[in-house]
Design a protein around this nucleic acid. Structure first.
Length: 135
DNA sequence: GCCAACGTTGGC
DNA sequence: GCCAACGTTGGC
């Protein structure tokens, strides 16, 4: 199983919105590297849901429930989406500041490549952050 | 609101 | 194919 991190601005789409909807379609990605990461996702993979701009923290865990298919919101270009569902909300959200303060986590794309909206997470990083989140 | 980092575009 | 100009993201 692989692990991922998905960024969303909470005023566009928050973890609460995903919980309310029961499942969500991760659309609107317009960056090749992020798209390629979406395409590498397998059903059953897990990921973090990160709130950018407001909060700047990982708020919970999601699971990929449908592998990539064409982005219905794309009028041109070759873009993809996956479907996800919420798994568990963190007891304590893990902030970017927290992540930066842990040297083991400083290799994460979240830190090194700030603007990448869909990025891979290593198993050890995933497990450590779950612990930090109280899950 | 500012601006650094980075991606994209287009002239040459 | 290089690179300057421009646009966007997202932390601060």
């Amino acid at each position: 199983m692989n692990y991922w991190l998905l960024k969303s601005e909470p005023y566009n789409y928050s973890y609460d919105d995903l919980v309310r909807d029961k499942r969500g379609c991760w659309d609107g990605v317009r960056n090749y590297q992020a798209r390629n990461n979406l395409r590498a996702m397998k059903k059953g993979d897990r990921g973090f849901f990160y709130h950018s701009n407001e909060g700047k923290e990982i708020v919970g865990i999601i699971e990929v429930i449908k592998e990539y298919y064409p982005d219905p919101t794309a009028t041109k270009g070759d873009w993809s989406v996956v479907d996800i569902k919420p798994i568990k909300r963190f007891k304590t959200p893990v902030s970017l500041t927290d992540i930066k303060s842990v040297s083991k986590l400083n290799e994460m794309a979240l830190v090194k490549q700030m603007r990448l909206s869909v990025s891979p997470v290593r198993k050890k990083e995933f497990e450590l952050i779950c612990q930090m989140g109280g899950v």
